[in-house]
Design a binder for these strands. Structure first.
Lengths: 135, 135
DNA sequence: TGTACTGTATAAATTTTGATTACAGAATGA
DNA sequence: TCATTCTGTAATCAAAATTTATACAGTACA
C-alpha cells in the first residue's frame, strides 16, 4: 500500500463533504489535490463503483457524495482503495523446506487478521468526523 | 509497505526460533526463503541494528536470535521493517486551497493513529506464539 | 452548435523494489 | 600459515509499481 490512493480518495471525499450537494468538477478537485485531472477522474471512477460518489457528465457536471458524510465510514475508503495487505506481501518460499512449505499459510492469516483489525478501527470514524476537523 | 520485508524478516526469525542456539548461515536461510543470500544478509543486518539477532562472522558463523522467541514480539518485527504508513503516503496538495492547506495535518494524524493501532495489536503476539503454529 | 464537462485508454516517466554479482574482511582449523 | 567458509557491504542491473501526461470520444447544457 505504498501509494497515495487512500490520501487522494479521502481528499476528494473531503471536498465533496464540505460542498455537500454541489457538483465539483475534476479540474477543481485536481487543483486542490495538486494532481492531474485524469488521475482524479480515475479515482472517482473507482469511488463510484464503490457507491460512495455519483457523477453527472456534460456541462455543469461533476461529482457529489452518494450519501451524507455521516453515513460514510473511513473503512469504506479503505475498502475502496485496498489492493494489498497493510503489512506487505509474501515471498514465494521453498516448498521443499518444512518452514518454507507452511510459512505463507500462517503469514497470510496474520496479514488478514491485521487488515481486518485496521478495517475495524476505521469503521469507528465517519467522513463527517474527519471533515469536522477542518477549521 | 508494498514489499516483502515483513515476510522476509519474520521468516528469518522463524527459522532462528526453530533452531534456537544454532547459528544458521545466510545461505541456508536464503534457501528456505528462496531469495538471494545477499538479500538475507541485508535484512539480517537490519535485524541486528534492531537488536533482534546476533551474528558471528567467519567459518561456522551465522545468526541466532538475540533473545528467546518468547521475548520477541511481532511489533518488534514491524518496527524493524517499518518505512511508510500502513495506509500509504500523502499527496502534496495545493497550499493555496483551504482544504489542501490542512488536509495533510489531519491525514498524517490518522496515518499515525492507524500505525500505532497495528503496532499495538502486534505487541500481543510473540515470535514464540507464531512459531508454535508450525507443525 | 459551441462550451464544459466526464470517461477512458494509452503511453511515458519516475520511483520503488528486488536480484545479482563481486569482493574485502573475519573466524576456523588443518 | 593457508585454504575454507562464512559475514558485511557496495554497486549495478532488472523488474515492477506508481504517477503523470496527453488525447479524444461522448454527454449535457444553454
Amino acid at each position: 500500500m505504498n501509494n497515495v490512493r487512500f490520501a487522494t480518495s479521502l481528499h476528494i471525499l473531503t471536498l465533496l463533504a464540505l460542498n455537500e450537494g454541489v457538483y465539483l468538477s475534476s479540474d477543481f478537485i485536481a487543483g486542490s489535490v495538486n494532481v492531474n485531472a485524469a488521475a482524479i477522474r480515475k479515482e472517482i471512477s473507482n469511488l463510484k463503483l464503490c457507491m460512495l460518489v455519483e457523477s453527472k457528465e456534460g456541462k455543469g457536471g461533476g461529482s457529489i457524495l452518494a450519501r451524507p458524510a455521516s453515513q460514510i465510514k473511513l473503512s469504506d475508503v479503505y475498502d475502496a482503495v485496498k489492493q494489498v495487505h497493510v503489512l506487505g506481501r509474501s515471498n514465494t518460499p521453498n516448498p521443499d523446506c518444512p518452514v518454507g512449505k507452511e510459512v505463507n499459510r500462517h503469514l497470510e492469516a496474520l496479514y488478514e487478521d491485521t487488515d481486518d483489525y485496521v478495517r475495524q478501527k476505521l469503521t469507528t470514524v465517519t467522513l463527517k468526523d474527519f471533515v469536522q476537523k477542518f477549521g
